[in-house]
């Protein structure tokens, strides 16, 4: 399993035990009070971008860069939150572990992207009482409301069965992988490095989901019908993934971001390959309408009803302790 739970470019949370020698196991507490080299990593919060040069490249509007990173970061954060809901609920232990891995990868991407957003444009970061130790990534994650979130609506879709979960992961990772592959050439070296790390992770996610889609499509009558129903229900959110927001136009022109419209064909072809292997047809449904005067969608901060509930749950403890240390 490609379990890389490291959210940062440098290590702060190791997957348990793999390179840690805990010494004498007869004493559960040996070393617990000693600040030795094996002490539980991250005795303090570390900036995920610590030691990384976060200077904004020449000719790039820092506000655009910040807004763009926020979009990508919110996608990853909200989708991670949804997938993590599978923990202890999956059809078998192997899938439970795999889904947790995917959620962890996305969470790691979100942390880096939110930290990049905050470093590029400090004005994005919500203010808290003076002296609050809450770091920027957590201020962004926990102290904005739904109108401030810029994720695509696909990321926030609630509930659903296992067929819906793998269909969502397939769609999301196919789209996002095409974007990340191009983003590795970003003039912003930080974003390029985040994308390079993400490409490895998303390739695994797409592979996992693609193989399950084929399995369900060619498994039993029930699994096939559940899969078709899931794809049909999700399809209205597909076209939104390739709509270009003005911020995306600006960052694409500046050579730091990717206009999602430019990956639409590639993503379509890849998805069709999976559908062909599965022996099923691509759903035929139009895109889900936006809301408000200008037909706003996820990138505009206009979401489905599900997002504010997701955030209410996610943020409840953090908001109760705006000066808390975790």
């Amino acid at each position: 399993m490609t379990a890389n739970n490291e959210p940062t470019i440098h290590v702060e949370h190791d997957e348990a035990g793999t390179n840690v020698d805990h010494g004498d196991h007869d004493n559960a507490y040996s070393g617990l009070l000693v600040n030795d080299a094996n002490w539980a990593f991250g005795t303090d919060f570390e900036d995920p971008l610590a030691g990384v040069d976060t200077t904004v490249p020449d000719g790039v509007d820092a506000k655009d860069l910040g807004a763009y990173c926020l979009m990508l970061g919110d996608d990853a954060l909200v989708f991670s939150q949804r997938i993590s809901e599978w923990c202890s609920n999956a059809p078998d232990l192997e899938e439970d572990i795999a889904l947790a891995n995917i959620a962890l990868d996305l969470l790691g991407q979100a942390r880096l992207l939110l930290a990049r957003a905050a470093a590029a444009d400090p004005e994005l970061v919500p203010e808290l009482p003076a002296g609050s130790p809450v770091p920027d990534e957590d201020r962004l994650a926990y102290f904005r409301n739904d109108l401030g979130f810029r994720n695509v609506r696909l990321a926030e879709v609630p509930g659903g069965d296992f067929a819906e979960a793998v269909a969502k992961i397939l769609i999301y990772s196919t789209w996002r992988l095409s974007i990340f592959e191009r983003l590795t050439d970003s003039r912003d070296t930080v974003l390029a490095a985040i994308a390079a790390k993400g490409v490895k992770e998303m390739s695994y996610h797409r592979d996992f989901a693609g193989r399950w889609v084929v399995t369900l499509a060619r498994g039993t009558e029930e699994s096939k019908s559940r899969l078709l129903k899931a794809l049909d229900g999700l399809w209205p959110l597909w076209s939104e993934l390739f709509e270009t927001h003005p911020v995306e136009t600006a960052v694409a022109e500046a050579g730091i971001g990717v206009d999602p419209a430019t990956v639409a064909d590639e993503a379509s072809v890849i998805l069709d390959q999976v559908f062909a292997a599965a022996g099923i047809d691509r759903p035929e449904r139009g895109g889900l309408a936006g809301v408000g005067v200008h037909g706003g969608k996820g990138r505009d901060g206009l979401h489905t009803e599900a997002l504010s509930k997701l955030l209410a749950e996610m943020q409840v403890v953090a908001r109760e302790h705006p000066e808390g240390q975790w």
């Binding site: 959210p7 202890s88 957590d138």
Partner: peptide, 26 residues
């Protein structure tokens, strides 16, 4: 508490921990 962990770092640690329990079960 995974969905409500009050920092992203703690959320990652908790999710990884609960995932590890599934691994131990295996």
């Amino acid at each position: 508490w995974i969905s409500r962990a009050p920092s992203l770092r703690r959320k990652a640690i908790l999710l990884a921990k609960v995932q590890d329990e599934a691994g131990h079960g295996l």
